[in-house]
Amino acid sequence: MSDLISALLLGILEGLSEFLPISSTGHLLIAQHWLGARSDFFNIVIQAGAILAITLVFRQRLWALATGLDRRENRDYVMKLGVAFLVTALVGLPVRLAGWQLPETVTPVAWALLIGGVWMLLAEAFAARMPERDQVTWKVAIAVGLAQVVAGVFPGTSRSAAAIFLAMLLGLSRRSAATEFVFLVGIPTMFAASGYAFLELARHGQLGSENWLDVAVAFAAAVATGFLVVKWLLGFIKGHRYTVFALYRIVVGIALLLWLPAGN
């Protein structure tokens, strides 16, 4: 398989998995186990492609927030988005500077998928017993920021799953409200991560080592696929729980643990 086709497939996979609570990073690591490893820069930039897709999906909501800051509820919402992003940045940046890197084996991803799937089933069952609320509190904003860091450190956890279900358990029990807040926080988070990765490559003189055609193709594929997936998901969660995704994670996690040789 050519590198270009491999990049295209990885971009499509990123767009499919970034916003579903199944872990895009985990799926990329699993796919690259067979399609060939890619750089952290490649992985982060195609995630930014998926984030561009969600920016397009929520463009009207973002415009309404930006032009409606004279309204208290809009200012409050934007400030909480900012706090969630700052928590992620202030906690996540030292982790990155400490030299953290993605794992080279699939086994920890498999365990994260399995445990995360069980956690989703339990969390949603508990949240279903709570009164339906769509108000984002400061506690929820801080927790979402921390959840993003945890998901970044443990591939397979899923940024969206960790943040959405933690938000629901802390009082933002309406699925659509929790999902929207987490997705909007992801916009500055992933764009900042991509920018940081780009600057790191430039600082070490490694920009020439990237295959920019592969990056561009994967980025475009992630944008197109991510746009379609988000539009579908926002409609799906209005009448369905996330149960199907939790079961998928459990099945994939078990399959990987059973079929992969130890240490792979």
Rank of each mutant, 00 (worst) to 15 (best):
D70R: 14
A192Q: 01
Y242G: 05
T105Q: 15
A218R: 09
A53G: 01
D214W: 07
S23Q: 06
W138H: 04
A161V: 09
G226M: 06
S6F: 01
H33A: 15
L207H: 05
G208T: 04
Q206C: 00
A197Q: 15
N43F: 00
A162C: 13
L146M: 14
N211K: 12
A224I: 11
F191D: 02
A84L: 01
P103F: 11
G99T: 07
E18T: 02
R72M: 05
A162D: 08
H204C: 00
L121G: 09
V252S: 08
V217H: 12
W63Q: 13
V106W: 09
L170K: 13
A110S: 12
L52M: 12
A224Y: 00
A218Q: 09
A222V: 01
A178H: 12
F165D: 12
G253I: 10
T55M: 14
Y248D: 10
I164T: 13
I250E: 12
A7S: 14
E14Y: 03
I22T: 11
A37E: 13
V229Q: 05
L90R: 02
F181V: 11
K80H: 00
D214V: 03
A162Y: 07
T243M: 08
V149P: 02
W138P: 09
I142M: 05
G68R: 13
L172D: 03
G26W: 02
S39P: 07
V150Y: 06
T67H: 13
G26D: 08
V83A: 14
W111D: 07
G145H: 03
L52F: 14
L93E: 04
A84R: 00
G68W: 13
Q47V: 06
L69G: 10
I250F: 06
I30Q: 07
T189C: 04
P188L: 02
V144T: 11
I254L: 15
L10Q: 05
Y77C: 02
F41C: 05
A197C: 02
P94Q: 02
H27Y: 11
Q101C: 02
L65S: 08
S39C: 11
Y77S: 01
R159C: 09
D76V: 06
R129T: 11
G235D: 10
K238Y: 06
K80Q: 15
S17D: 03
W212I: 12
L121N: 09
P261Q: 06
N211F: 07
S23H: 06
N264L: 12
E180L: 10
G15M: 00
V87W: 09
G15N: 00
G36L: 10
F219I: 06
L56G: 10
L121A: 09
A125Y: 05
F126G: 00
A255S: 13
A221V: 01
Q101T: 15
A161T: 07
G205K: 07
Q32K: 11
A178W: 10
L65K: 06
A161F: 03
A141Q: 02
I164G: 04
R59H: 15
L90C: 14
G92L: 01
M1I: 13
L234F: 05
I250M: 15
V150C: 13
A192F: 12
E210T: 08
L97N: 07
L201C: 00
L256H: 03
K231Q: 14
A177N: 08
R71I: 03
G36Q: 11
V182I: 08
L184K: 00
G235C: 04
G49Y: 01
V144G: 10
T55V: 15
F19Y: 14
S158H: 07
A127E: 01
D40N: 10
T157A: 09
